[in-house]
């Protein structure tokens, strides 16, 4: 999943970038409102973390402009000004959640995971498609109740597919979500990982949970069994 961090403090930005990368995100970072707005417009972002006190364009304005331009990805506000007035302003501008500074990374990560789930239409932290169950909190995957061992990259591919279960994700989209902007992209790698995932999730090749649509991409074919959230 590709996340954009807009934070003017270089130390906090670097630290957040590192930790989000280790948590499996593909991270873009921006140091001011202008850069943030540009990145939000131009990159296929899944999620944005925006500090409110930004140079050049304020965080609130960045959020308002992105929303005005029809960007619907979830936005989490990072703020040092945590009076309710500021929180309400941020949420009214179009943010989906806020985390006051100083925060524990674990809490931020949990909130981000929740936002991602919700943006895919999942209300609960466990995603279930057919007999495949993925717990976003523990990153555990089970098939018919039996745990399946996945590598970190395999997990991220599966999470991507399951969050958008039912939708077609192109190889390019998957690559952009899973690789950092600086890495060399090779869409063949995706095919390899999809192949491994299929073997692990469906060794007998009976249910075919991941569908290949020729020339278009991949889709999680098993039906969602958890309730969709009201959004």
């Amino acid at each position: 999943m590709r996340v954009l961090i807009v934070e003017d403090d270089p130390d906090l930005r670097d630290s957040l970038t590192n930790r989000l990368r280790s948590a499996g995100f593909n991270v873009d970072s921006a140091a001011d409102g202008e850069e943030g707005l540009y990145a939000g417009r131009e990159y296929p972002i899944d999620l944005a973390v925006i500090d409110l006190g930004l140079p050049k364009i304020s965080g609130l304005d960045v959020i308002r402009r992105l929303r005005a331009e029809g960007k619907t990805f979830p936005i989490l506000v990072l703020t040092a000004r945590d009076r309710w007035q500021d929180k309400v302003e941020g949420l009214e501008a179009g943010a989906d959640d806020y985390v006051p500074k100083p925060f524990h990374f674990e809490e931020l990560n949990a909130r981000l995971q929740a936002l991602l789930r919700r943006s895919g239409g999942w209300a609960a932290p466990t995603l279930t498609c057919g007999d495949i169950n993925l717990d976003t909190r523990t990153q555990q995957v089970t098939v018919s109740g039996a745990p399946v061992e996945l590598t970190s990259f395999e997990y991220r591919v599966l999470e991507c597919l399951m969050i958008r279960a039912g939708e077609v994700l192109s190889k390019t989209e998957l690559t952009e979500r899973l690789y950092d902007q600086d890495f060399e992209r090779d869409s063949n790698v995706i095919e390899v990982f999809i192949g491994r995932l299929r073997k692990k999730l469906d060794p007998q090749n009976t249910r075919q949970p991941i569908e290949t649509l020729r020339g278009r991409g991949y889709r999680m074919a098993l039906p969602r069994t958890a309730l969709k959230s009201s959004n």
């Binding site: 403090d9 906090l12 957040l16 590192n18 930790r19 990072l78 040092a80 100083p102 674990e106």
Partner: peptide, 18 residues
């Protein structure tokens, strides 16, 4: 003041967790 105090705290906390 809140902003300038809390961002360093956030940095410290983030680095601690690394």
């Amino acid at each position: 003041l809140a902003h300038s105090l809390k961002t360093p705290l956030a940095v410290m906390r983030s680095f601690l967790g690394e």
